[in-house]
């Protein structure tokens, strides 16, 4: 059920776009209105979410310490895994965001005969996760050629790199194959690994199915059910210049493709996909472990409540304490 429902949901989205365009003739709705709404939801929702998170104070340092903290001079500090300075945190964050360093530490636990518990390194999630994210990035960037009137050189360069092997015409993009492989792995991992399957929810499967469907419709459109790219670019550039025109016939596969993308954009800020913004705001990664160097004051402390040290406390209650035979520091 946890797998089936999200799968049906994605199929329903495909059917909705197909029927909407093919039977109801709602090209303008699916080609112009929904993309604008979805993009507004994506951008607005993303910013709203981040600002919402920013409302929570994180007064105390809670970094995950994964190495030796800053200590005495003759004890070497692990500057990346337990940073105490701005630059240490910057290095840690860059490695986290661009190379998924935390995932690299992913381990697996297995029980063998004996019984014997064995821990081992498990890098597949890191590897396929990294491949998936970078491929997705390349795919998003090379789509920009359809949204800009005059295509800058760096887009040409990325496209040329993606189609490096010059297979067939239109040229085969490596990213198309790799993303199917990577999403396939991430899906099978949830399905085959019993531990991960147990904790997987529909919200985990839905984005995987959705992204897989986006990739498949895109591949179909590029290599099999050809569509008129000029009409599509006219629409896409029109969207980006706020003067959208629907010109000529565009196959329904295109509307299915962009409707799925719209679903992804609209869904993005309200789902686990917000880890895109969240990774930057993880207090366990973006804070310096400097509690012994800097005093961090809780912002919601009531200023009327003055600090009450133990010495003061003893002064106040000394009589009662001695009466009750509680030892006191000052007689």
């Amino acid at each position: 059920m946890k797998v089936l429902y999200p799968f049906i949901a994605v199929l329903a989205l495909v059917a909705l776009a197909f029927v909407g365009v093919k039977a109801a003739g709602l090209q303008y709705l699916f080609g112009v209105v929904i993309p604008y709404m979805a993009f507004a939801m994506f951008l607005g929702g993303f910013i709203y979410k981040v600002l919402h998170w920013a409302k929570s104070p994180v007064p105390f340092r809670i970094p995950t310490t994964c190495g030796q903290a800053n200590s005495l001079k003759f004890i070497e500090q692990n500057k990346l895994d337990c940073p105490s300075t701005f630059w240490g945190v910057t290095g840690r964050m860059l490695l986290e965001v661009f190379l998924f360093r935390s995932l690299f530490r992913n381990s697996k636990a297995e029980v063998h005969d004996g019984p014997k518990l064995v821990y081992g390194s498990s890098k597949y999630l890191w590897l396929f996760g990294l491949i998936f994210h970078y491929t997705f990035l390349v795919i998003v960037i090379r789509h920009m050629r359809l949204f800009v009137g005059h295509v800058p050189d760096f887009l040409h360069a990325i496209e040329a790199g993606d189609a490096l092997f010059q297979v067939g015409a239109p040229l085969l993009y490596q990213s198309d194959l790799i993303i199917l492989l990577a999403v396939g792995f991430l899906f099978l991992r949830r399905l085959i690994n019993a531990n991960v399957r147990y904790i997987s929810l529909p919200a985990d499967y839905f984005p995987l199915f959705l992204i897989f469907a986006i990739a498949v419709t895109g591949i179909l459109m590029r290599y099999f059910l050809r569509v008129d790219i000029i009409n599509i670019k006219q629409l896409a550039v029109g969207l980006a210049t706020f003067s959208p025109v629907l010109h000529g016939e565009i196959g329904s596969i295109f509307y299915i493709h962009i409707f799925l993308v719209c679903a992804l954009m609209a869904y993005f800020p309200f789902s686990k996909l917000m880890h895109m913004g969240g990774v930057w705001m993880s207090p366990t990664r973006n804070m310096a472990n400097n509690s012994r160097m800097v005093r961090h004051i809780n912002p919601w402390n009531d200023p009327n409540i003055k600090p009450h040290s133990y010495a003061d406390y003893e002064d106040e209650f000394r009589e009662f304490m001695t009466d009750a035979n509680i030892p006191v520091e000052k007689e």
């Binding site: 993303f46 910013i47 920009m144 949204f147 005059h150 550039v237 980006a240 706020f242």
Partner: peptide, 22 residues
């Protein structure tokens, strides 16, 4: 600044075109 950079990247086609559809 992070949000501004994010919004800038996401709206790349809009400001890059500057209303000029080519």
């Amino acid at each position: 600044p992070g949000l501004i950079i994010f919004a800038g990247l996401m709206t790349f086609p809009i400001w890059y075109n500057g209303g000029d559809a080519g």
